[in-house]
Design a protein around this nucleic acid. Structure first.
Ligand SMILES: [Mn+2]
Ligand SMILES: [Mn+2]
Ligand SMILES: [Zn+2]
Ligand SMILES: [Zn+2]
Lengths: 129, 129
DNA sequence: GGCAGAATGAAAACCGTTGTCAAAACCGCC
DNA sequence: GGCGGTTTTGACAACGGTTTTCATTCTGCC
């Protein structure tokens, strides 16, 4: 684990939600770190390969990364306003995916599941404003 | 509905699975149609806006489109080998998404769910070969 | 035919990401 | 401390899917 890689991971660990490579790069540079964008991308890739961060793609095609607390299979509930993210487990949805695949003769089933919404604090800010 | 837009939609209607813009463009050109890539993109965008086609993003960042039979909310079971796609409804997963959101104080819940696997015919081809 | 507005498409711009490659940092060894 | 080698780094260029631009063509209407 090199120092740059560690710096990238630290940003993610201290982040509440998903962050983009460019976002992380900007934060590191703003904090005085000497690091290149290419290195941020490489660090994220190796962290993702090692299973230490989760990746997902936003609607506009940007990859975003998060250091999740759980190493086990889980999904995300993401506030579409502030990005606040909670990790959720879902035995029900796991079973459903397997069942629906089997029902149509599919094997080696995998799935992607993400849930979006407005979190409690964003909702109260909106109603107060 | 202009003739180009109709041509684009026709390709999708006769397709089994999701297709990319460039893919559709290539097929139309191969069939002798006089159409530009820009127009294919525009047609797909307006069809998507009108809710006549579903869009999803592949892992490598390409947008792919499909003219689904159902106008109502559904998800997809996609063969990762041949692209064969079946539309699946899932009351269980709908309820789960709502519940998990509410449980954490989130409102205006939406979700994305896609299931991938190897379809029956691809599995038999693989085992025969 | 003549006209206004919409549609079209070739080419350029855009943007996140990846490849290139020379310089810098690191490491074990003497 | 000095020396070879390996690895890491980052400025820059290239890539690929998508969008924007803008001049031309088509369309419906009189
Ligand atoms: Mn799951
Ligand atoms: Mn659903
Ligand atoms: Zn929020
Ligand atoms: Zn298949």
């Amino acid at each position: 684990m090199t120092s740059r890689r560690e710096a990238v991971r630290d940003v993610l660990v201290q982040s509440e939600g998903f962050r983009s490579a460019q976002d992380i790069y900007a934060e590191l540079r703003a904090g005085g770190a000497k690091i290149g964008l290419t290195t941020v991308y490489r660090a994220l890739q190796s962290l993702a390969d090692a299973g230490q961060v989760d990746v997902l793609r936003t609607d506009d095609g940007e990859s975003v990364y998060r250091a999740c607390a759980t190493g086990t299979h889980h999904h995300h509930l993401v506030c579409r306003r502030c990005g606040h993210t909670v990790e959720v487990a879902g035995p029900a949805v796991e079973r459903w995916a397997e069942a629906v695949g089997a029902e149509h003769g599919f094997t080696s089933i995998t799935h992607t599941v993400e849930v979006f919404g407005t979190c409690g604090s964003c909702a109260s800010v909106a109603s107060a404003g």
